[in-house]
Write a protein that binds this DNA or RNA. Structure first.
Length: 894
DNA sequence: CTGGTGCATGAGAGG
DNA sequence: CTCTCATGCACCAGG
């Protein structure tokens, strides 16, 4: 059962009926639309919680006071109001029902577990609630707020402003509106999110805007009185002006002189359709909100303080409109495609005519869109909704006019793609070039009514597509793009915050940004590239740096010593262990001390240099100093000395950090993995002064290091992956090797004569495998070949760089010693080089020699899994895992 | 060889 | 798990 009532303030009739055309609305049954029997207008259902107690006559009664609740009959005054968080509240006794959000014990038993409680516990846990000390009952001290709301609440008008206020950190946070299904109401918001929600609520929040808006504003004003949320009032107003801009909002927003409306006149159709649209879009919007609550991190405190600096002009000018829900297959358009447009642009497009412009959608140009291919991929939903229907892949020619009035001819078509379609605009190159658009710029599509002519605008971006898309996606992911538009202090920072993207309006549109863009928190976004903020990278480095202090070789495991270029390396077959942290100090005499703190008595004990204490260490473990092998023994350090020790240690740390901080920005902008690897290297370097210096024989490698060099057993020794090993790494290496080989074979066959091919090229995969197999046999028979090869690899290198990126080294070697930077491209290039040239370059006379190398390199290949499977090594040395695998493959190939 | 065209692929987002 | 879409790539035609 659901209550249906007309939202028309002047009507108040009962709402019933099914899908119909009424007043220009196309309503489908799936829209939950109903028609008012009285005025004929259609509205979405207002479904009260179905779990109400309902008496025989259909009335719902309050279980506490017995008064009848609003049963949905429009003839009765609503005695019940919806609560955010779900449920309802009896207006007579203020008792709540149906809410799982409020842990009100007296009501708890009656609480109804509404599955549709969108903003109930699913969004805010009880912990959250307690944390913010929500108060469900109208507080006396907030009576002004309630009065303000009540003043705007017109029962006859059925404006559903909620009466349940909440105290959040001293702020009276008021659910601003309810909408749509009655038991779907908004949740409480934290002070940090108030403004955000205001924007959202301000969207189509109330069922009768004329009544609700004043309420909204009053609420906002009340909150506005708190400094922390200053200007949110304006923010909310601005959002309202934008989101409701299509409607005749002018009279409602008189105090907001900047809030001009769309050029679209407030015809009945527009008003009605937008009303409908408002309701419908809100559903999706509400969904967005829900998602946001689930997925996105909280806004940082202070975000909205910055908002106060947002230029009001900007706020008023930019329109962000949810596109019209019309056309075929109009799915809910992703917010990223919602058009944003300014009065200026509207004016420019429409000129002085009486035409109305309907913004349809926009799209940020991708690299391929703006490339020379001349194809602009259209979002499917947009294409199907707003462009002419096409049934054949060839599509239709389409004329689209730009803002300057020039008409462009495109081919609107599609490709079948995975049982779906991929829509493209072909022939956009001239237009792209004419408008000097590039990847990252945004094109907007609108329609001029009633002509139905398509027009396109554009918005230039100052940043690359990467950051821009990220920013847009990020912003949109945060919800309604209106937030972006009016966002805080973003504008002035825009030009200087290129790293995280921003839009700078160079033409018709105003800057659109969101403050959070500046914080690149969408690691692993659409961009397929891991982005990491500078601070994040630094943090990562420091974290790793600190972690270095705890990484120690496994206890009771004797390392084998490998000598490479006169440097001794300790090799461990087991992964590192977490060890107890020690502090190293330098004596005045120049000697070094290592200090450790007892876990039991917290006294500091001196232990010999080079000792690797276990993660748990107590005085009893102090076998080096029997006098202090008990917790009863006095502390060797005075408080002053201890202070000095700690200071000394902190200074060491500071130096390390300074060292890291001085690294180039580019280093900090490495990808996540590279940053990890870099941090690892730096961490090791920096840690030399502490434990590292005394626990490893090599200046760079630390005990327990499981990088490929460190875990690598002496040549020909240690566990290897069998040739038939099917672990991921082995399979990857094999696959890539085959790919490289096949590619090389193909190119070679094209370039060389058939005789040479017969001699040099490997004609089939079987042959490759046979050869690999035979070479492995060689390796097994004489492991020294492996050693020789590895040795050659090392010796040939001008400078041995035994940091924790050995794979990169291998990669570089694969490419060539002169290669300044190894990359997959280099690998491919190396792989694609003619075999002859390679042989020549490496002074190899024949394949016989290279066979040995292949055999030798296979050691590298098969050792890779050791590294990858060592788990703890992943952060340390696995940064270039893929590249390393490819390098191994390249080595294998070579 | 170059550029255009059509399709395939896979990462990422959404359901 | 499905869908979207950015992009890669094979194929083809024309110069």
């Amino acid at each position: 059962m659901s209550a249906k009532r007309c939202m028309n303030a002047s009507c108040g009739g009962a709402v019933a009926g099914e899908a119909n055309w009424r007043k220009g609305w196309l309503l489908k049954s799936g829209d939950n639309a109903t028609l008012c029997d009285k005025c004929g207008l259609a509205y979405e259902q207002l479904a009260f919680c179905e779990n109400f107690h309902q008496n025989e006559s259909g009335w719902r009664e309050c279980a506490f006071c017995g008064k009848r609740l609003h049963c949905g009959c429009i003839a009765s005054k609503p005695l019940l109001d919806l609560l955010d968080g779900g449920g309802v509240q009896c207006l007579s006794c203020s008792k709540t029902y149906g809410s799982t959000f409020f842990p009100n014990d007296s009501v708890q038993d009656l609480l109804l577990q509404s599955s549709q409680n969108v903003y109930g516990p699913s969004a805010w846990s009880y912990a959250e609630e307690e944390r913010y000390n929500f108060d469900i009952s109208p507080a006396n001290e907030s009576s002004d707020v309630l009065t303000a709301i009540s003043g705007s609440y017109d029962e006859n008008a059925r404006c559903n402003i909620l009466h349940c206020g909440t105290e959040v950190n001293g702020y009276r946070i008021l659910p601003l509106a309810k909408i749509e299904n009655g038991n779907r109401s908004f949740g409480h918001v934290k002070s940090e999110q108030v403004a955000l929600h205001m924007e959202e609520f301000g969207f189509p929040g109330c069922t009768d805007q004329e009544q609700s808006l004043p309420g909204l504003l009053q609420v906002s004003k009340r909150i506005d009185s708190n400094n922390a949320l200053k200007d949110n009032f304006n923010l909310a107003k601005a959002c309202l002006s934008m989101t409701l801009g299509v409607q005749n909002m002018g009279n409602l927003m008189e105090d907001n002189s900047k809030a001009s409306t769309w050029k679209i006149t407030s015809s009945q159709h527009c008003a009605v359709s937008d009303m409908r649209e408002k309701n419908k879009s809100f559903s999706a919007f509400q969904h967005d909100l829900r998602d946001r609550h689930h997925r996105l991190p909280r806004l940082p405190k202070g975000s909205f303080c910055a908002a106060s600096d947002a230029p009001r002009e900007l706020i008023a000018q930019v329109r962000i409109a949810r596109p019209p829900a019309e056309g075929r297959g109009r799915n809910q358009l992703l917010p990223r495609y919602w058009p944003r447009i300014t009065d200026q642009e509207l004016q420019q497009i429409t000129g002085d005519s009486n035409s109305t412009i309907v913004p349809l959608f926009e799209k940020v140009l991708s690299a391929s869109d703006a490339g020379r291919i001349g194809r602009l991929v259209l979002p499917k939903a947009c294409a199907e909704a707003y462009f002419p229907p096409i049934s054949q892949p060839e599509g239709l020619p389409l004329k689209i006019q730009d803002a300057k009035g020039k008409e462009w001819h495109f081919q609107f078509r599609f490709w079948p793609n995975n049982n779906s379609r991929m829509y493209v605009l072909e022939g956009v190159t001239p237009c792209i070039q004419s408008l000097q658009l590039q990847a990252g710029d945004t094109v907007t599509f609108s329609r001029i009514d009633p002509e139905g002519k398509l027009v396109m605008g554009y918005r230039k971006a100052t940043n690359n597509v990467q950051s821009l898309q990220d920013s847009q996606i990020s912003a949109m992911a945060n919800g309604f793009p209106g937030c972006e538009t009016v966002s805080p202090g973003v504008n002035e920072n825009l030009s200087t915050t290129d790293k995280h993207g921003g839009l700078l309006n160079e033409g018709l549109l105003q800057p659109l940004l969101i403050q959070e863009k500046r914080r690149s928190r969408n690691i692993g976004s659409r961009t397929k590239r891991l982005l990491m903020d500078t601070e994040d990278a630094m943090e990562l480095k420091f974290t790793w740096l600190e972690a270095q202090d705890f990484l120690l070789p496994p206890p009771k495991v004797k390392p084998s010593i490998v000598i490479i270029e006169d440097q001794e390396f300790e090799e461990y077959e087991d992964p590192p262990v977490l060890a107890k942290r020690t502090f190293n100090t330098v004596q005045v005499s120049g000697g070094h001390d290592q200090w450790i703190q007892c876990d039991d008595c917290f006294r500091w004990r001196r232990i010999p240099l080079g000792v690797l204490p276990p993660s748990k260490w107590a005085c009893a473990d102090n076998t080096w100093d029997p006098k202090r092998s008990s917790c009863a023994a006095p502390d060797e350090l005075t408080s002053t000395e201890l202070h000095s020790l700690l200071r000394q240690h902190s200074e060491m740390k500071r130096k390390q950090i300074t060292t890291i901080s001085s690294q180039s920005l580019s280093d900090l902008e490495l990808t996540n993995l590279k940053a990890l690897a870099g941090a690892a290297g730096l961490g090791e370097t920096g840690s030399e002064a502490t434990t590292a210096a005394v626990t490893t024989r090599h200046p760079r490698h630390r005990p327990g290091c499981t990088c490929i060099v460190c875990i690598q057993p002496p040549s020909g020794k240690g566990p290897k992956h069998s040739p038939s090993c099917s672990c991921n790494v082995c399979m990857t290496v094999k696959r890539r090797f085959k790919t490289l080989m096949m590619r090389k074979k193909k190119r070679q066959s094209e370039r060389e004569d058939s005789e040479a091919n017969k001699k040099l090229a490997w004609s089939s995969r079987d042959e490759i495998e046979d050869m690999t197999s035979s070479l492995k046999t060689i390796q097994q028979n004489d492991p020294r070949i492996v050693g020789e090869f590895m040795k050659n690899l090392v010796i040939n290198k001008a400078h041995i760089d035994l940091n924790c990126q050995p794979r990169r080294d291998a990669e570089q070697q694969a490419v060539g010693p002169s290669s300044p930077r190894a990359s997959m491209m280099n690998l491919l290039q190396a792989a694609s080089r003619p075999l002859e040239s390679y042989l020549k370059q490496n002074k190899l006379a024949s394949l016989t020699v290279s066979e040995q190398q292949v055999s030798s390199s296979s050691v590298t290949v098969h050792q890779a899994p050791i590294e990858s499977e060592s788990g703890g090594d992943e952060e340390h040395c696995g940064s270039d895992k893929i590249a390393g695998d490819a390098a191994a493959a390249a080595l294998l190939y070579e």
